[in-house]
Write a protein that binds this DNA or RNA. Structure first.
Lengths: 230, 230
DNA sequence: TGATTGGTGGCACTGCGTGCCGTTACGATT
DNA sequence: AATCGTAACGGCACGCAGTGCCACCAATCA
């Protein structure tokens, strides 16, 4: 009998333990179900004590998508590094890159996570709460940039929700399509199609468009009066 | 010592017990904090056994906003009763009425819930998950009605998220404004301002508007050439 | 080599949520 | 009005999540 190996003492050791725990959790959740798998099971499968599991993850649910906070910080960094006056459409597109990368870097695990969050109620709620933190982040950053507009707060809240929904829709279609690693640009392509739907359109805002339309309608009315059709 | 009163045997008794539990939970959470309040505390404050609490609510979190499922069903009923070809903007406005009513019927409790969901992480996550069920419901119903459009699924997903965000923004501004009961229409008024931001504008989409504008511009240009002002 | 630091495993504890069971009130039936 | 069936009740016990505590061990440094 070899003595039990303690692996977590170095930085590489900690990364190894963490990876083992994530893989064990995903495998056990997928195979035996989320509710039927205990934290003891996960820890034992990873060759580690139960108490150690909670030193790597806040709880059982966090083992499924453990890189949420890191990714959130990267998204925020994109906004922080961007110029104040940069157009919003390309910025919100670029801000989502860390999320896309997180999924695209490990398609197999992404698919497993996707299946779990679809089928397990507790993980679906967790996912919704996680997505909501991205929505709030986009909302904060857009509010800064739309502060001078009329109804800027409203536009920021609506746009943030719309953008996050578009991102998730893109990721979702990529996942149900088999999560092929070579389709790295599919997400971005899908997202670009939504740009015209957003309140903050690339070049002209909806408000401006409405004003233009009103003025042109009046011009048309004058046209009808001065030059009747025939 | 009077013998303990058993109140839950009739329909009115059950409603009374339920109300007592909700009020006790809100009061204790607000006064002593969510984590510091146990289910035993809530049950004892409502004069009921601990086991009974779990017969009225799925868990500790559900006691804060217990009418979520009923409200969700009412929203769905609005969609089910609506005509297939009804314009979307007034429909999504009307579909939110049950939510508005739920808040407006008890402003004091709504404010207490709002403060709790802002300050307690567990309840904020719960709220996000709850809001997400509304988003999915709107998404399903909009997908039915946008199926024939190009990118209909995308438009449905984006619009659903935008509409729900607008609703929540309206409710939020009503709540931070003091939750005055007479401001029943403030929510709807706030929401109407967002209509022009939505992909599915009241009568004409932004794309169509641009096409119309182009055509009218050409007509106006012709008018300028043929009949100069004077 | 000895002391410090930091991660680990085990133990015990609180609290949530559930299954089970005996008890009790209410309402229906006759 | 007495009785029976239903259903909600209280209480107990249990499993599991998550946390505080402590002894232990490996790596680093004096």
């Amino acid at each position: 009998m070899a003595a039990p190996v303690r692996r977590g003492r170095s930085a590489e050791g900690r990364a190894e333990v963490r990876g083992d725990l994530v893989r064990a959790a995903l495998a056990l959740f997928t195979e035996h179900g989320y509710d039927e798998t205990t934290v003891d099971d996960i820890a034992a499968a990873a060759g580690v004590g139960r108490r150690t599991f909670f030193r790597y993850f806040r709880g059982k649910e966090d083992a499924v998508s453990p890189d949420h906070e890191t990714c959130l910080a990267r998204v925020d960094a994109v906004f922080a590094a961007a110029h104040e006056t940069e157009p919003l459409a390309p910025l919100v597109l670029r801000a989502a890159d860390p999320v896309f990368d997180l999924y695209l870097d490990s398609p197999a695990e992404a698919s497993a996570r996707f299946a779990l969050t679809r089928n397990v109620a507790a993980l679906r709620d967790r996912e919704a709460a996680s997505v909501d933190t991205y929505r709030r982040l986009f909302g904060r950053r857009l509010r800064e940039r739309l502060a001078d507009r009329p109804d800027g707060e409203l536009a920021a809240a609506v746009t943030a929700a719309a953008v996050v929904a578009a991102h998730n829709m893109a990721l979702r279609s990529w996942l149900v399509d088999g999560a092929r690693p070579e389709a790295r640009d599919t997400c971005r392509a899908t997202f670009r199609r939504v740009e015209t739907m957003l309140p903050v359109a690339p070049s002209v805002a909806a408000d401006d468009l409405a004003v233009i339309a009103t003025r042109l309608e009046r011009a048309a009315a004058r046209l009808e009066r001065t030059a009747p059709p025939g």
